[in-house]
């Protein structure tokens, strides 16, 4: 623990290990990002990429970097960070390490909106919008169902699982109603993919992160840490528990909905990143910022693998995050069992 103090009664607490983890993730994301901007059908060296980013590239390079590759990279960073931040918030709020948006039904809700557009027919912008709106509406629905003089963690989980089951059924039915071509497109979207993503996909998530991120991190972070100790303890310490929970759920559901709208319901990032962050920082608490940075790194790396793993064929990024995330969880189980903790 490092404490910085200034004469003006300002004092800041820093956790050196968490700081190191966050910084490393940010730097690695940038490095892999530059690599990603340079790779593809038109390969560019890192130097060329940096020159182009500085505004000194040829028109061809400018087009490839700014119009084709940078939006996709920005979408990956924004979606990864948004999912991981929301995942860390959910896990703390429901006091359950499995409290991810998949478990709570929000991703299924976003998918329902998207599938309705697929069946009815509409543009990809409409699909994104519908996903965002229905994801958020599902969040509200789960909250209302779980509410009984306040919302407790386990009630939220049960309500979420119920809603998720119903929506999974509806989604399956919608898929069977869609024309074959559209159904194939919908399945790709449902897996989570960053193919052909442009600024129109990246911007809503980036804006939401820029607005909600600081509020969640600085405004609610310390209070969220207290909520891990139970509602009564947090209340006794002066946290307005119920109001804060509603506000944080709203913010996290909004982030997940917008992320799903941009890239589809990408698997496992929201679940894995906060776990991994906690393991790396070895700090108790929700580890919000390290989780978000790690989420961005995870998705950027996963997308790079998705594009390059099978030559001449792009995988949807959701396949890769599923493999990485699921593999990590199984490894974690084995490691914990060896250590005798499970």
């Amino acid at each position: 623990m490092i404490v910085l103090r200034t004469p003006g009664d300002i004092s800041l607490r820093l956790h050196p290990r968490a700081l190191a983890v966050g910084l490393t993730c940010a730097l690695l994301t940038l490095a892999v990002g530059v690599l990603a901007l340079g790779s593809g059908d038109y390969p560019m060296s890192a130097a060329d990429v940096l020159r182009t980013l500085a505004g000194d590239g040829t028109p061809a390079e400018e087009f490839i970097v700014h119009e084709l590759r940078l939006p996709r990279l920005a979408t990956a960073i924004a979606v990864g960070a948004a999912l991981a931040l929301a995942g860390a918030v959910f896990q703390t709020l429901v006091r359950n390490p499995l409290g991810s948006p998949d478990l709570l039904g929000f991703t299924q809700g976003a998918a329902t909106g998207a599938l309705v557009v697929v069946v009815v027919g509409g543009t990809s912008t409409m699909l994104s919008g519908a996903a965002a709106v229905s994801g958020f509406a599902t969040g509200l629905l789960v909250y209302v169902i779980a509410w009984r003089r306040g919302v407790h963690g386990y009630r939220l989980v049960l309500a979420g699982i119920g809603v998720a089951a119903i929506l999974t059924g509806i989604n399956g039915w919608l898929l069977t109603r869609a024309p074959l071509m559209d159904a194939a497109r919908a399945v790709l979207w449902l897996t989570g993919s960053l193919d052909g993503r442009g600024w129109i996909h990246a911007l809503p998530v980036l804006i939401a992160l820029a607005l909600l991120g600081p509020v969640v991190l600085a405004g609610a972070g310390p209070a969220l840490r207290l909520m891990e100790m139970g509602d009564d303890s947090a209340n006794a310490l002066g946290v307005p528990v119920e109001r804060l929970r509603l506000a944080l759920l709203g913010a996290a559901v909004l982030l997940v909905s917008l992320a799903s709208a941009a890239a589809g319901p990408v698997n496992f990032v929201a679940l894995t990143a906060p776990h991994l962050a906690r393991r790396l920082t070895r700090a108790p608490g929700p580890n919000l910022l390290p989780s978000a940075l790690l989420g961005a790194l995870l998705l950027v790396v996963a997308d790079e693998i998705a594009q390059r793993a099978v030559p001449g064929h792009q995988l949807p990024v959701g396949v890769v995050t599923g493999l990485i995330g699921g593999g990590y969880l199984i490894w974690l189980l084995a490691a914990e069992r060896r250590a005798g903790r499970l």
Binding site: R95, M229, G230, D232, S233, A236, R278, G285
Partner: peptide
Amino acid sequence: LLPQSSIAPDG
């Protein structure tokens, strides 16, 4: 307040 039951966060 010292509540009847509080949860010590992991670690």
